[in-house]
Computed example of a mutant assay.
Amino acid sequence: MRAARDVFAERGYHAASIRDIAREAGLSLSALYYYYSGKQALLVALLEDTLADYQNSCEVALAAAGDDPAARLNAFVRATVEYRVRRQVDSLLALRETRNLEPDQLEGFVQRRDALPGLLQEIIEDGVACGLFATPYPDEAQRTVLAMCNAIAQWYQPSGDLTVTDLVDRYVHLSLTLVEYRLPGDR
């Protein structure tokens, strides 16, 4: 799978061949076919692994955050930013190559993937309902938070001046600003 990820990232799904992947993995073509029926099966396995890891990261963070919408938003953003940095190549593949899933694979994958924006939407709506978030645009806030977090995979350089901790802190701050977070005494 690591070889498939590297080949897909370098060449794109359509330009990659199963032979290229086998060579990168140090396997014979027949050995690769023993484990995966083809390039589509490798793409599905990669995307499913990526999604499962991201979902797990979010679930663990949210379970520790409790019921407070601000703490849950913080946890969701933190998990997303850390994930996008930790699995940067995988994140880019998921953003770019999902379109190459065959229709029977695409539908189920998209349903599982879209559950995460639904969790974020629920957090924001809960915050608005209890008066912690004052945004008049919860749908747009949810889309903006996700878009900015997802974009990290495109530009972040681990060797740059910005640490992951700084990045997380900034994105949590930006997210709380987007939802117009109000401290309990400021409502």
Rank of each mutant, 00 (worst) to 15 (best):
R2V: 08
A4T: 04
R5T: 08
D6M: 12
V7M: 07
F8I: 06
A9Y: 13
Y13M: 03
H14M: 09
H14K: 11
A16P: 00
R23E: 11
L32T: 06
Y33V: 00
Y36I: 05
L42W: 03
L42N: 02
S57Y: 14
A61K: 05
A64Q: 14
D67A: 14
P69S: 09
N74K: 12
A75N: 08
R78K: 15
R86G: 04
R86L: 12
R87K: 14
D90L: 06
A94Y: 00
L95H: 13
T98Q: 09
N100V: 03
L101I: 08
E102D: 09
E102P: 00
E107V: 14
Q111M: 06
D114Q: 03
L116W: 09
P117N: 00
Q121N: 13
E122C: 06
E125M: 02
E125P: 00
D126K: 08
G127P: 07
V128F: 11
G131T: 11
A134G: 12
A134V: 07
L146I: 10
A147M: 12
M148R: 09
C149H: 00
Y156N: 06
Y156S: 02
S159I: 06
S159C: 07
S159G: 01
D161Y: 12
D161N: 07
L162F: 11
D166C: 07
V168S: 04
V168T: 10
R170S: 12
Y171S: 08
S175H: 03
L176Q: 09
L178E: 07
V179K: 07
E180T: 05
P184R: 13
R187V: 01
